[in-house]
Simulated scan of single mutants.
Amino acid sequence: MRITVLGGCGAWPLRGEACSGFLVELDGFRLVVDVGYGTMPRLPSPDIDAVIVSHGHPDHCADLNPLLRARVLRAEPAPPLPVFAPGGALDAVLALDRPGMLDSGLDLHEFVPGDRFEAGPFRVETALLPHWVPNAGLRISAGGQVLAYTGDCGPSPEVARLARDADVFLAEASHLDDVPKEAVGFLSSATIAGGEAAQAAAGHLVLTHLFAETPPEEAAEAARSRFDGEVTVARSGLVLRL
Rank of each mutant, 00 (worst) to 15 (best):
L128R: 14
L128K: 13
L129T: 06
H131G: 09
W132T: 15
W132D: 12
V133K: 11
N135Q: 13
N135H: 07
A136W: 00
A136M: 07
G137A: 13
G137M: 10
L138F: 04
L138M: 09
R139E: 10
R139F: 01
R139P: 07
I140T: 08
A142L: 03
A142H: 09
G143L: 11
G143R: 15
G143T: 10
Q145D: 12
V146I: 10
Y149R: 03
G151H: 11
C153S: 14
G154Y: 05
E158D: 11
V159W: 10
A160R: 11
L162T: 08
L162P: 04
A163G: 09
R164G: 13
R164H: 14
D165V: 00
A166R: 07
D167G: 02
D167V: 04
V168M: 01
V168K: 00
F169K: 09
F169I: 00
L170C: 06
L170K: 01
A171D: 08
A171W: 09
A173C: 03
H175P: 02
L176W: 09
D177M: 10
D178V: 15
V179P: 12
V179R: 11
P180W: 00
P180A: 00
P180N: 06
K181Y: 13
G185S: 05
F186R: 05
S189W: 07
A190S: 02
T191I: 06
I192R: 14
A193K: 01
A193M: 08
G194H: 02
E196D: 07
E196R: 15
Q199H: 15
Q199N: 12
A201I: 05
A202I: 04
A202E: 06
G203L: 05
H204I: 14
H204K: 10
L205V: 09
V206T: 06
V206A: 06
V206D: 00
T208K: 01
H209K: 10
H209N: 15
L210F: 04
E213A: 15
E213N: 15
E213S: 14
T214F: 03
T214D: 12
T214R: 03
T214Y: 02
P215I: 05
E217T: 14
E217P: 08
E218M: 12
A220R: 12
A220P: 03
A222R: 00
R224Y: 00
R224Q: 06
S225N: 00
S225I: 09
R226N: 04
F227A: 04
F227K: 04
D228E: 14
D228P: 05
G229P: 05
G229Y: 06
E230I: 03
T232Q: 00
T232V: 07
T232R: 12
T232M: 00
A234Q: 05
A234D: 03
A234R: 00
